[in-house]
Design a protein around this nucleic acid. Structure first.
Length: 240
DNA sequence: GCGACAG
DNA sequence: ATCTTGTCGC
């Protein structure tokens, strides 16, 4: 994995963070279709927090895109370095996510993020940011709508409706399971929206959320638990 | 000025 | 994100 030099990677204020986004936004590549769904590798990344102990755990789980079997896993634990601010999620998650990605044994392939890419107030969400910093193709699959209008998609899996910022389609509400709340897909880096949706459907043969996200979520929670135990008085925990 | 607001 | 039991359903 490669990373581009980025001195202003960890801004101290919200204003600086927004300036970083405005600067990096120009490096997003939107004119590549991205890897074909169902081939190669797909990596899910997710983060879990323990604000009480100021801990953050990230996980990266790589699946074979055809079989959805796990081929590589990695975790990283760090200190919370930025508060949660809507629109600035990347600054809270990316440092630890990068560490987890770097620990992966093989190439990540397409990276699936928990959150948004283009569908962002400044068109530079977590997935866009991670893509620019790593150079990897990325997409964002969020569980909740942000600040964009959309119509409820038809009840069948595969149905979608545009996420609209005025008249611009910045993402899609995509139904991954019949009659179940849709997920919110947007482009990150080097992948187009049709492909991003196709990947999302290929990753949801059974559940609403992509297998990548589910695996990464379970893994970072486990990593956080282990880290939490290590940072706690042993007397509070049963021997085993 | 008052809410809304990915994780 | 996280706090949290049982419960309805395949």
């Amino acid at each position: 994995m490669t990373t581009v030099p980025m001195p202003a990677d960890r801004p101290a204020t919200e204003e600086q963070a927004r300036a970083v986004q405005d600067e990096l936004r120009g490096r997003v590549v939107l004119d590549e279709p991205g890897p074909p769904p169902g081939t190669g590798r797909v990596t899910g990344v997710d983060v879990a927090y323990d604000d009480e102990r100021d801990l953050v755990a990230a996980a990266a789980v790589t699946l074979d895109a055809a079989t959805l079997e796990v081929v590589a896993e990695a975790t990283a634990v760090g200190r919370v370095s930025f508060p949660y601010v809507p629109g600035l999620l990347a600054f809270r998650e990316i440092p630890t996510v990068l560490a987890a990605l770097d620990s992966l044994s093989g190439p990540p392939g397409l990276v699936v993020c928990d959150g948004y890419g283009l569908a962002h107030p400044r068109r530079f969400g977590l997935a866009s940011h991670l893509g620019v910093v790593t150079g990897l193709p990325t997409i964002g699959v969020a569980k909740n709508p942000f600040t964009f209008a959309y119509d409820d998609p038809a009840r069948e899996r595969g149905s979608a409706s545009p996420l609209l910022a005025g008249d611009e389609e910045v993402g899609r509400a995509l139904r991954t399971r019949d009659a179940v709340k849709p997920v919110f897909v947007s482009v990150g880096h080097r992948v187009n929206l049709d492909n991003a949706c196709a990947h999302t459907l290929a990753l949801t043969p059974r559940y609403r959320l992509p297998e990548t996200t589910r695996r990464a979520d379970a893994l970072c929670r486990r990593a956080l638990q282990e880290a939490t135990i290590r940072h706690s008085p042993t007397s509070r925990y049963p021997e085993s």
